[in-house]
Amino acid sequence: MMDLTTLEGKDTPGKVRALCRKALVPLASDPSIGPTAAVCVYPNMVPIAKHELRGSGVKVASVATAFPSGLSPLSIKLDDVRQAVELGADEIDMVIDRGAMLAGDYRKVFDEIAAVKEACGQTHLKVILETGELGSYDVVRRASDLAIAAGGDFIKTSTGKIQPAATPAVTLVMLEAIRDHYYATGKRIGMKPAGGVRTAKQALHYLVIVKETLGDAWLDPDLFRFGASALLNDVLMQLEKERTGFYQASADFSAD
């Protein structure tokens, strides 16, 4: 249920390869700990990730639409999406135009998401709301509804570039939007909190929120993902702690 992410200006092929290897084998000493759900990278890094993850079932997600601000002309954003899809991305993580959202230009937000969805074709679309910039839960709810109505397969809290990123409260608001959509249409939309989920304990809190808001069906990588890199090592550390009975050291776990 975890997406390992590297979205830095200093991403290099070596860094992306290292992250992919970590996604495939999180803990060498315990092969039973399976690979992560996806690896999330910038479009230029998609071919490298695809090559590294070939045949593994681990998905490659690419951010697009002038990530992280989203403040470029629509034609450029759509090109960004098409090229990421052509480069082999299995999933597209788009950002909404927060400026338009806060200016009340909901039609623009909706139309852009719909256009991106069209550009994605069969490729899975995640819509990043960047809730840390939206200011209130009301706006988050409205953005969630727009993103779902415009065709997003997943809604996602944050780019990871803005604080606050994922919080339990904002996640609950988004899950409620997903729940209402399900009640109305029977269609299941996915959820991805991203940024700020660093510990296994926090992750458990989120899983409880999901389970108690949407039920067991959503406890599945097709409908719920954590966008987190630090989380993986903490989970591994807690598993080791359970196995051995004593607290572990961070240096015991690989730093990719």
């Binding site: 009975g245 004593f246 607290y247 572990q248 050291a249 961070s250 015991d252």
Partner: peptide
């Protein structure tokens, strides 16, 4: 004993 076993 907790501190003695703690790997950090």
């Amino acid at each position: 004993p907790q501190l003695a076993k703690h790997r950090e």
